[in-house]
Simulated scan of single mutants.
Amino acid sequence: MDRTPEFLTQAHDERDPSPWLALYLDQSTPLPDDVKAAWLADSSSGSRQYLLPFLRPIARLTIILIQIAKVFVPRNWSHSILLHRLLAWGLKRFVSPEANWLILRHFHLGSQILAFIGRNSPAPVATNPLEPADIDALKDEMFLKHDLNLFNFVIRLNTALRDRGLALCKAEKVDFSMIREPGLRLEDMPQGRLNFLDLQSAIELFTPLYQLMLTDNDFWRAANSLQLDETIGIYAATILNAPEHLILVNNKHPLVPLSTLRAGHRLVIHGLSTEMLHSLLQRMQAAHQKAENAGQPETTLYEQPLA
């Protein structure tokens, strides 16, 4: 089935320009063309336009009601395995191919970014990569492990730096070897008649379920892991000595916890930030290889434009 977005097949009308085509052609946001096309196709879908405005307030009200109900439930009540089986079932049967592709990519890209920081730190630390090959692989508590990985990485990295009296700094020779395309294909995602739900609607629907079937600690940690976007962005920018690349990473201050009611929207921002940071690393990797092939000194590498 051809998944070319409609805005790429229609002729440009100057009296009625497509906002999606403008965003696709714009190069100020660093994303590969195939990722940007999938993201905008998902964002311009009828599901997001007509269904999301109704789902979002219902989902947020449900979060409030579940929080009240959990006052009367044992604190450690949790059904993580069942949760992940339900999430995988829902993704396979109701979520659009573009959204599923972006979700699976997120685990791979996040793992690569953590590996990049861990390996280029003056006190290198190991990571636990999560690289699901398909939606069924998510049943292995992949969403919960993703949140645990992030916090454990920040703790291990900074413990190692503190123990050696070091601080994260610009790497003299940057290792990009872990940065690569995940190898996941959009055409391999489920494409049944009911696979219509866009990414944001799916996240809004799944967030209350996530809250219901995990402990309060696990849900709170998942919601507040989103505020580490700036933290991870700062780590990468410090290693690369390129602070200007943090401008599009904006998921609120990590020291100011936010309400879980907006977790769905912020999770979308988290996914997009990860895609953009990975794309920037790919561009720098290409510039690094080009400079090496030309015999250019390493010290001038990051003074080059990335476009």
Rank of each mutant, 00 (worst) to 15 (best):
A307I: 15
R164C: 04
D140R: 09
I269E: 15
S177T: 13
D218L: 08
G110N: 09
L280N: 12
M213S: 09
F116N: 05
G46E: 14
L209P: 06
L246R: 10
Q191T: 00
N195K: 09
A133T: 09
F54G: 10
H270Q: 12
L267P: 00
V71G: 11
E204R: 06
W89S: 13
K173W: 13
L199A: 01
E131I: 00
L277S: 15
Y235W: 15
I66S: 05
S43A: 15
A37H: 05
N224P: 00
V268S: 15
R262I: 11
W20S: 09
H12N: 14
A286V: 11
E187A: 07
L65S: 11
P182N: 03
L144I: 15
K36A: 13
A59G: 02
P32I: 02
L212V: 12
E298G: 02
S121C: 10
H265D: 15
A38S: 13
D42R: 05
R266S: 00
Q211D: 15
L91P: 05
F143V: 11
S43M: 14
S45G: 09
I203G: 01
L226M: 10
H288C: 10
D175W: 02
E298R: 14
P122H: 07
L258D: 11
I81G: 02
A123I: 08
P122T: 02
H278N: 03
A59E: 00
F7G: 08
V71M: 13
M213Y: 12
I64M: 14
A38I: 05
A286W: 00
W20R: 02
N251K: 11
L130Q: 00
L104P: 00
L228K: 10
K173P: 01
P182L: 03
L109W: 11
D229V: 15
L261C: 08
Q289T: 15
L83T: 01
L258G: 07
H12E: 14
L258N: 08
L114N: 06
M213G: 01
Q304F: 04
A223Y: 11
M178T: 12
T159G: 02
I117E: 11
N250T: 11
A123T: 05
Q289I: 10
S201A: 12
Q282P: 00
P124C: 06
R56N: 10
L255E: 14
A22W: 02
A69G: 04
L157K: 09
A41Q: 10
E172M: 06
M142W: 04
Q49S: 11
F219Y: 15
R60H: 09
A307S: 12
P30I: 03
M276K: 14
F219A: 04
S279M: 08
L157M: 14
V249Q: 06
N250S: 14
D218A: 15
A160P: 03
R180E: 15
P97S: 03
Q227L: 07
I68T: 13
N251Y: 01
T4Y: 05
D2K: 14
I179W: 10
N128A: 10
D229Y: 07
A137G: 11
A242K: 13
A237I: 04
T127K: 04
L184Y: 10
H106L: 09
L197P: 01
I64H: 07
A160R: 03
M142T: 14
L277F: 06
L83D: 08
S225T: 13
Y24D: 02
L248G: 07
R105V: 02
S28Q: 11
F54M: 09
V174Q: 01
P297C: 10
L197Q: 03
P297E: 04
R283H: 10
P57H: 01
M178P: 00
R15P: 03
